[in-house]
Simulated scan of single mutants.
Amino acid sequence: MTPIIYLKECASTNDEILHFLKSDQTAFPAVYTFNQKKGKGQYGNSWESAADINLAFTLAVPSALIKMPTHLFNFHTAAAVADFLAIMTNMQPEIKWPNDIIIKNKKVAGLLLEKKTAAGISYFILGIGLNVLQKSFPNLPKAGSLLTQTGNEFNLHEIANDLHIYLQHFLIKETSENEVLGNLNNWLFRKNKISVFEIKGVRQNGIIKEVDPEGFLRVDLENEGLQRFYHKEIELLY
């Protein structure tokens, strides 16, 4: 049976899982906690999470099993989490490029994909922060939880175990790079809608068109026409 380990508290599940990986590891082990002290977000950011009401979950995937570029696997994992939440909530989540999960215009989950070596084996370390039971976010106006966005309460342990099972099946399914990119663009937040963006401190209107095969976001800007952007080069204001 693939192990999933509950930690009463920890600094970061993405760091803690390295202690549980073995040289003969073939399964997808996971660790989770409801009390993460120093959660990590994308590009050096931190992931803030209130204790005992939210989930911090990390899955280790042997990189030898993944037959696609890292940026596409990043999108693939975002689609997996969105699909899981769609089934669980009976709602339509969206993916805010590159891999935040949005429900009803609020961010409920963030992903962090890292590549690390443990016990001589290379892994993709997939960290997921999921807001579950938190009722208010006074310093994070764009954040929400499954409770605030659906009105339903969920059991934290059940979510962790169900997510572990679902990800294992989803991530090993045979798929093509075109399918991965197509799934991302189908889930894409604010696609084909007029939105406000900030680029180098300047705001202007634009329309998200798609994410291209290299992972760039293509935006049709009001003043500059169709442009492509990499992470941190553009900010969507919503």
Rank of each mutant, 00 (worst) to 15 (best):
Q36V: 03
G144Y: 01
K193C: 03
N183W: 15
I172N: 12
P62M: 04
Q25T: 10
D162M: 11
S12L: 03
Y230N: 14
Y238I: 12
Q36H: 02
L163P: 13
A118H: 01
E214I: 12
L130Y: 01
N90M: 11
P138C: 02
A30V: 13
P141V: 06
L237N: 10
A78S: 13
L221N: 02
D83M: 10
C10R: 10
L146S: 03
S46V: 08
F154W: 03
F137H: 00
I102V: 14
K107I: 13
E114G: 12
K116Y: 02
K209Y: 04
E235P: 00
K209I: 08
K193A: 02
L156W: 03
F229M: 07
D15M: 03
D162V: 03
I125Q: 11
N192Q: 00
E222D: 14
L163G: 14
A56L: 00
V132E: 01
P69H: 10
L171C: 06
Y230C: 08
A160L: 05
F189S: 09
I165R: 12
L146Y: 04
A143Q: 01
Y43R: 14
N223L: 15
H71W: 09
E174G: 15
Q149Y: 07
I66W: 11
G44S: 04
G201V: 06
G151H: 12
A80L: 04
I66L: 15
K200Q: 08
N155D: 14
V202E: 03
N45K: 14
A82Y: 05
M88W: 08
I17E: 06
K193V: 02
P93T: 09
E48M: 10
N185F: 06
N54R: 02
F34P: 04
N192L: 00
I207T: 02
I207R: 01
I121Q: 15
N35E: 14
T13I: 06
S49M: 02
R218N: 15
K38C: 11
L126P: 04
G151F: 07
I208M: 00
H169F: 13
L59H: 12
P213G: 07
L184V: 06
G206V: 04
A78F: 07
N185W: 08
G127V: 04
K67E: 13
T89Q: 05
G41I: 15
A60Q: 08
K173S: 15
F137M: 01
V81W: 02
K106D: 00
G129W: 01
I102N: 05
E94S: 13
K107M: 10
L237Y: 11
K173A: 15
T70D: 15
P93H: 07
I194M: 10
N14I: 08
S49W: 01
N205P: 05
F137G: 00
G182H: 15
T13L: 05
F84L: 09
H76Y: 14
D100A: 09
I5Y: 05
F137C: 00
N139M: 10
